[in-house]
Structures are given as structure tokens and as C-alpha cells.
């Protein structure tokens, strides 16, 4: 795909003519500067403010309470059982959804690579959930699918003679995981299918003729070929899954208790329900650090493959 671009020796141009490069850079600066400028502001200003608020006593309901708090907000945060619960919930949510979507997505990608009648339409149907807005998928699952009395799940349960279950009360986190997995499985499928199709199928053919079983073909040819796409899917999903919000907001509001409160919802509740700006900002810093750990690997692995 990138062969056309690669035929142009860009590296030569930049290395051998420093004066020309300086001139080019001056000429190109006005083109790049606006995009870089606004992004810089968008990144730096809130980041600095979050850091600043996180060491302040700052509650919107109590203006008398102010001043430098030091690490007070962080101390309060780490001694709060809700915080640890939310951290665990966040990690369980991310981990479970990753397992379901990457595992399922890989298998489905191989399945949808096989020829069968109406494949184009089937593929379009299968990836559709990704384009549904989170609030809609949460509502549809909460009411039409998982409602204990009127939902499809309740109907199926009664059909096989089991008594209906109130999913969001009995298995709150698992229900949220199910919804989020439903949204992200198509994403994994879409990306991995594209990667599968870029595989040189004569390799598979050769392996098959040499007597390799389907499992062997998958294990020794497909999986190594997919490893790069899988790592990209894992990292991009992690970035988004760390901050799942709308699905929880619509279905359980973090409950029952704190059973489905993840870090994103905890910070929202602190800031916009309890008006504790300092505490929420401390939580925000934790979220930023968590995301940065993932981002470090993502940026590196994409950067390594950039042919500039």
C-alpha cells in the first residue's frame, strides 16, 4: 500500500541539504503551526489546571474552604475504599472486555475471511454495533435486552424454565462488560479482518498442502501475522476502555453501591455531584498516569513502524 510513497527518497532530501530544509521549514511553519498550537493549548492548560486543583482545597459548595492542600487530596483518595473499588472495577472492565473482544475478534476475523454466501452483508451486520452511540446501546441493552420482565433475556430464561434475573442488580459489572464488549467486538473484528486479508494466502495454501491442520495454520501463520494488528487493537481499546462512562451513566449510575463505579465515573461523581474539585482532580491525575502507561507502549509501537 505504501510503496508509492516509499519510492520518493524523502530521507535524502532532509539529510543532505540543511539550508534547503531550513527554508522548507520556514515555509511550512504557518501550515503546521495552527494545528500544533491549538493542540498544545488543549493539552497543557487542562493538564496544568488539573495538577494545580489536585493540590488545592477547593469545593464549589463551600467557598470558605480553600488554600493549599498539598497531598491531602491524594491521601484522602487512597484511604477511600471507593477509590480502590473503582480502580479494581476499571481494571476488571478493561481486562474482561479486552479478552472477549480480542479473542472473539481474532476468531471472527478468520471466520469472515472464509468465502461464504452473502459474506459482504453478514460483515456489515456484524460490525454495525460499533457505530451505535454508547447511550443508545446502553439503553437498548438495559431495557429491550436485559429488562427482567420485558427483555429478550428474560423471555429466553423463562423459555428454558429458569426464573428471570434482574441483570443489573445481580451481575452489575458483568452486564456492563457485556454491553461494552458488544460495542468493541466489531471494532476488533474490523481491524483484525483487514489485517487477515492482507496476509498472503498462498502461504496458507502451501501450509495446507504440506499437511498442516487448521489449528496449526492458525497458530503458526495467522497469529504471527496478526500480532501487530492485535497489539494495536489492545492498546487503542485500552485507551478508550479506561474511560468508559456513558454505559455506566445510563445503566447503573455506578451502583448498586460502588459495584460498577470505575475511575471515570468516580471522578464525575466527585466533581459534578459532590462538587469536590480538589478530590476529583486528584482522581483525574491517577487516570492520566494510568493512560500514560498504556500510551507509552502504543506511541512507541506505532512510531517504530512509521517509515519516515
Amino acid at each position: 500500500m505504501s510503496t508509492v510513497g516509499a519510492t520518493v527518497p524523502m530521507a535524502d532530501m532532509t539529510a543532505s541539504q540543511p539550508a534547503a530544509e531550513r527554508r522548507a521549514r520556514r515555509r511550512m511553519l504557518p501550515l503546521v503551526a495552527p494545528a500544533v498550537g491549538v493542540l498544545l493549548v488543549w493539552m497543557i492548560v487542562p493538564l496544568v489546571l488539573t495538577l494545580w486543583f489536585s493540590v488545592q482545597r477547593y469545593n464549589l459548595l463551600n467557598p470558605a474552604l480553600h488554600g493549599f492542600a498539598g497531598i491531602e487530596n491524594y491521601q484522602y483518595l487512597v484511604t477511600d475504599p471507593d477509590f480502590w473499588a473503582s480502580l479494581v472495577n476499571t481494571l476488571v472492565l478493561v481486562g474482561a472486555v479486552l479478552v472477549v473482544t480480542v479473542g472473539g475478534g481474532t476468531l471472527l476475523a478468520v471466520l469472515f475471511d472464509q468465502p461464504f454466501a452473502g459474506k459482504g452483508i453478514a460483515r456489515v451486520l456484524a460490525i454495525s454495533p460499533f457505530f451505535v452511540m454508547p447511550t443508545v446501546s446502553a439503553l437498548v441493552w438495559k431495557n429491550l435486552m436485559l429488562h427482567p420482565i420485558y427483555g429478550i433475556a428474560g423471555f429466553l430464561w423463562r423459555l428454558v424454565g429458569l426464573s428471570p434475573v434482574d441483570w443489573f442488580a445481580t451481575f452489575p459489572l458483568a452486564s456492563v462488560i457485556a454491553i461494552v464488549s458488544w460495542e468493541w467486538l466489531p471494532f476488533a473484528l474490523l481491524i483484525l479482518l483487514t489485517a487477515v486479508q492482507s496476509l498472503d494466502h498462498s502461504q496458507i495454501e502451501a501450509a495446507r498442502l504440506d499437511g498442516a491442520s487448521f489449528v496449526q495454520q492458525f497458530r503458526y501463520i495467522m497469529l504471527p501475522h496478526l500480532s501487530r494488528a492485535i497489539s494495536v487493537v489492545i492498546m487503542i481499546e485500552t485507551i478508550f476502555l479506561l474511560t468508559v462512562f456513558a454505559e455506566i451513566f445510563v445503566t447503573t449510575s455506578g451502583g448498586p453501591g460502588n459495584a460498577t463505579t470505575n475511575l471515570a465515573f468516580l471522578i464525575y461523581a466527585r466533581a459534578l455531584l459532590q462538587f469536590d474539585v480538589g478530590g476529583a482532580s486528584a482522581g483525574g491525575m491517577v487516570a492520566i498516569v494510568l493512560a500514560n502507561i498504556v500510551a507509552f507502549f502504543l506511541v512507541r509501537s506505532i512510531g517504530r513502524r512509521m517509515d519516515i
Binding site: 493539552m43 492548560v45 487542562p46 493538564l47 489546571l49 488539573t50 486543583f53 485507551i239 479506561l242 474511560t243 462512562f245 475511575l263 471515570a264 471522578i267 464525575y268 466533581a271 474539585v277 476529583a280 482532580s281 483525574g284 491525575m285 487516570a287 492520566i288 494510568l290 493512560a291 500514560n292 498504556v294 500510551a295 502504543l298 506511541v299
Partner: peptide
């Protein structure tokens, strides 16, 4: 893009 929105929600 990796900066989580929830981290900067408050400011």
C-alpha cells in the same frame, strides 16, 4: 489523544 477526557474534565 491518550490524555483521558476524564482527567481534564474538572478544569
Amino acid at each position: 489523544k491518550m490524555l483521558p477526557p476524564v482527567g481534564v474534565l474538572v478544569p
